[in-house]
């Protein structure tokens, strides 16, 4: 008997809306310390910026533009895939939820 396949990597369409979730947070020098449930996470500046932009909910495409404005385009890789790699751990830890888009 084979185990079920691993979970697929995060893939969200451009119009999916992502929203940040936390019970409390602190910000210093671009970083963010987040309390969610009983867990505390120290977020990098780019993850912190994503959380800030998405507090009220934001489409993935707009979030991508906002992050590029602050940090510039990634030097390598597909920009959407880079964004998914940033969001995946946030979604996995419950710090961000998403709708499936239109």
């Amino acid at each position: 008997m084979k185990p079920p396949p691993p979970q697929p990597p995060l893939s969200l369409p451009a119009d999916a809306v992502v929203t940040s979730r936390a019970d409390d947070f602190l910000e210093r020098d671009g970083e963010m310390l987040v309390l969610a449930g009983s867990h505390v996470y120290l977020l990098s500046p780019v993850a912190a910026e994503a959380m800030r932009v998405a507090w009220g909910g934001v489409p993935v495409a707009e979030l991508q533009v906002a992050l590029v404005e602050v940090f510039g385009k990634p030097s390598t890789g597909n920009i959407h895939e880079v964004l998914m790699a940033i969001l995946a751990p946030l979604v996995d830890q419950g710090l961000m939820v998403h709708s499936s888009g239109r």
Partner: peptide, 11 residues
Amino acid sequence: PLLRGLAEVAS
């Protein structure tokens, strides 16, 4: 730095 320290203390 405060946040880095707090991340450890919080745990």
